[in-house]
Amino acid sequence: MPFINLVAREISCKIVYYGPGLGGKTTNIEHISARTKPESRGQLIKLATEAERTLFFDFLPLDLGEVRGFKTRFHLYTTPGQVYYHASRKLILKGVDGCIFVADSQRARLDANEQSLEDMKEDLEDYGLAFDQLPLVVQYNKRDIPGALSVEELRSVVNPNGAPEFEAVARLGVGVFETLKSVARLVFLELKKEQNTGPSSEPDGGSGR
């Protein structure tokens, strides 16, 4: 549910990077933070363990500029990957508007990818969100790794619905912005649909608005 302030003419959306541990979620938003002008972003907050593993979430607020006179804010969150952080991972999905699933292209991580996708579906359903209605983009990360799985193999496991997909080397920034832009597009299309199909008659509050 994007958040729209008609007075300040601002819209904020929440984007969550989900995926198996060590797949490159944090690396994605670190790259975005490093490549965005300081005036267009807030602080990158990382709630991490001493070993740099995401403990709760990473957070990066971004200003994307204006769309038709509305300031557009995107709040990027990453989830912690390890299996035992399931409870906190799920919390991050609350109020999500769009999701990026970061898959790890290493053969040894195929099961972890699959498991993570299953978790995501379950978590979304627990919030009453249908997996196939949420704006979702799949990123095949670590394409630089020797012996990486083919995109076809990965697709059959983590992208059965044919969501928009991107190959990436997050460590070098390859594919990172393309992925984000793609999910932003989906979120806006969803919003467009919502506005156009919104209830034509509001309950009459008599507020004289």
Binding site: M1, P2, I4, L129, L134, L191, S207, R209
Partner: peptide, 11 residues
């Protein structure tokens, strides 16, 4: 279904 957008109006 996605939950609806929160809209803050002037009032």
């Amino acid at each position: 279904m996605l939950s609806p957008t929160t809209v803050i109006r002037e009032e």
